[in-house]
Amino acid sequence: MLQQILNHTPTYVWAILAFLLYRGVAARKDRVLSYRSVFIIPGVMLVLGGQSVAHGFGLETAAGVAWVLGMLAGAGLAWTRSSPVTVDRAAGVVVQRGSWMPLTLMMTVFCCKYAVAVALSIEPALCGDLRFALPVCLGFGLINGVFLGRLLRIVGAWHADRSALIA
């Protein structure tokens, strides 16, 4: 059965995995990123999470609401728990501290998304089972929210630095 699952996995899924691994391993070291590039991983993770909820359960369902609520909770946690952000508007860069957290979160989303896709392909009725859908969507939302909250911290620091330059 595992071989069947792997054989039916589209090639692009492995490309996404490779990209996420690359970015996650890079995130373990302190790095200087352009302001624009800090939007890439949160954007990818939000798309992956939203796509899973939309295609698997529907955004207009209770599962979609659970995803949004999870995102709000995750963003709030990340906002209050994230490390300070250093920005250099003149250079157009953000200094991010190294952490294994992004890799852990990305692999969690990838593995959960993969497992949910397999589960739904084996048992399509699960998409209507709230005992399955609500925790899955809440979990996706929490993790997506952490990425969103970290991004909002960077955006906030970027704009705070701008107002300091204006004053």
Score class of each variant (00 low, 15 high):
1 M>D: 15
2 L>H: 13
7 N>E: 12
10 P>N: 13
11 T>L: 09
16 I>S: 04
18 A>T: 11
25 V>K: 06
26 A>R: 14
28 R>C: 10
28 R>T: 12
28 R>P: 02
29 K>M: 12
32 V>I: 15
34 S>I: 02
35 Y>D: 06
40 I>P: 00
41 I>T: 09
43 G>K: 08
49 G>H: 01
50 G>T: 05
51 Q>N: 13
52 S>T: 10
52 S>M: 12
53 V>P: 00
58 G>S: 07
61 T>H: 03
64 G>H: 05
64 G>S: 06
65 V>W: 14
65 V>K: 07
65 V>M: 14
67 W>N: 07
72 L>C: 10
72 L>T: 10
73 A>V: 13
80 T>I: 06
81 R>C: 00
82 S>A: 14
83 S>L: 11
85 V>D: 02
85 V>N: 04
86 T>A: 14
92 G>E: 01
92 G>A: 01
95 V>T: 15
96 Q>I: 10
96 Q>H: 11
99 S>T: 07
101 M>A: 09
105 L>T: 06
109 V>P: 00
109 V>G: 01
112 C>T: 10
114 Y>F: 11
114 Y>K: 14
117 A>H: 08
117 A>I: 11
117 A>N: 13
118 V>H: 03
121 S>N: 10
122 I>R: 10
124 P>Y: 08
132 F>K: 01
133 A>I: 07
135 P>V: 06
144 N>W: 02
146 V>W: 05
150 R>D: 04
152 L>D: 08
152 L>Q: 13
153 R>I: 06
153 R>Y: 06
154 I>D: 00
156 G>T: 15
156 G>H: 11
157 A>R: 07
157 A>W: 08
157 A>E: 05
158 W>K: 11
162 R>N: 08
164 A>K: 12
167 A>Q: 14
